[in-house]
Design a protein around this nucleic acid. Structure first.
Lengths: 217, 217
DNA sequence: ATAAAAATTTAGGTAAGTCTAAATTTTTAG
DNA sequence: CTAAAAATTTAGACTTACCTAAATTTTTAT
């Protein structure tokens, strides 16, 4: 069996791999796991011994097939629990990350399977992130960033790239909820902020910083 | 904050205190926690430093008020999760203990409160054990053991004293479910086994060993 | 009452996961 | 191309929770 800590490293390696090409560096892992590079090195040696990562000293790491399978299993559990917390318990989408971070480590395939059924086999978590399948596949999504949409286009808000409480609460205050349809107004050439118009005709001003963290289709 | 392991010790001290008078011995704890007496002594010193138990060397331990408050909080979470697993996810009552053993350590008062509401503020877990209140009180129950009931009496099955999978599955096979009404037939004077009759008139033979692990009212 | 048995604690050690400081390797800049 | 900077690894140490073996205290039985 793998420890809580090992699972978190696998998940983190997967997450970093998604947003950058090439192997994952020791320092990048140290930053995300909030530990020191020396501690990361220790753990990498251990994960390599277990053949969960490909690791050559000084060269960074990448998950093996088995490592990726485990990472996706943990991400699946995390996202299913987030759906539970929001849909069933009524938590806000900005309040579930830390709790799901603990729940994801409960080790029971039957629990995961029953939870999935109970929730109605959801495809996406409350932040619009796709839920890996039981078979261990991450569903592909074809979303663009709102910051890449042209004036006049009509799009639907499908996900977020930033998961911080502060960002999600900002979206709540702007009434930008997942699934809402918006039409792009003019883009301010100075700061690239943009006005979008909701279904209800309500104008919402969105900074470039926010727009590039919103996924639309 | 208190570690996973510390929480388990508190819960175990509480559980042992319930079924025997006087202080809890080091050996009793070693047996239940499946560790060695020397390890228990280490942990007792730590819990005493944190003022969660009263501890005098060689004299056994008992929970302080704060220790009992924490123990009841953990038991509350355990039992609420068991209700969730059985009522919402459809697990059998014989399959939930180990999973709840992990879930009980998820540390979020809001999670516990919302789960309680979601489940409809249940008073008892799937084994008939009372769920401690949010205020930290263990509800009193006035159940007798089936082995102490007289011939001819009509009683209702309210709980179990033994929680093993084997015992619970045995009850399932006998169609002895919580809440079912039975009337006591004759008690065999040789082995103290007893015949009970269900509501449907079905006769069920119950060994003394089983009868003294069944709680009725 | 006291010696043997049982229970408990102390002493010293291990593994996991972390740390700091020092050594080493790789990358970058002139 | 090479020296300085940055990244990474190694060495040695700490904490938690556990262990075994030995010492100590309490209990039990004659």
């Amino acid at each position: 069996m793998h420890s809580f800590t090992e699972e978190n490293y696998l998940k983190t390696i997967y997450a970093i791999s998604l947003r950058q090409a090439g192997d994952v560096s020791t320092n990048a892992l140290a930053e995300v796991t909030a530990t020191k590079a020396a501690s990361v090195t220790d753990m990498l040696r251990k994960l390599a011994d277990k053949e969960l990562i490909h690791y050559k000293k000084y060269q960074g790491v990448r998950l093996t097939e088995e490592g990726e399978r485990l990472a996706l299993q943990i991400i699946r559990r995390h996202r299913l629990w987030e759906v539970f917390l929001v849909d069933k318990l009524g938590f806000g989408w900005d309040a579930v990350h830390d709790i799901a971070e603990e729940l994801e480590h409960i080790r029971s395939d039957e629990l995961t399977a029953r939870l999935d059924t109970f929730l109605g086999h959801p495809q996406f978590d409350p932040h619009g992130d796709p839920i890996p399948t039981q078979a261990g596949l991450m569903p592909e999504t074809e979303y663009r960033k709102l910051s890449e949409v042209n004036e006049g286009e009509a799009v639907r808000l499908m996900g977020v790239l930033e998961h911080s409480t502060a960002f999600l609460q900002h979206l709540d205050r702007c009434q930008l909820t997942l699934g809402c349809a918006v039409t792009l107004g003019e883009i301010n050439p100075f700061d690239r902020s943009v006005r979008v118009v909701s279904e209800a005709g309500l104008p919402i001003f969105v900074s470039h910083e926010v727009a590039r963290n919103l996924l639309v289709e």
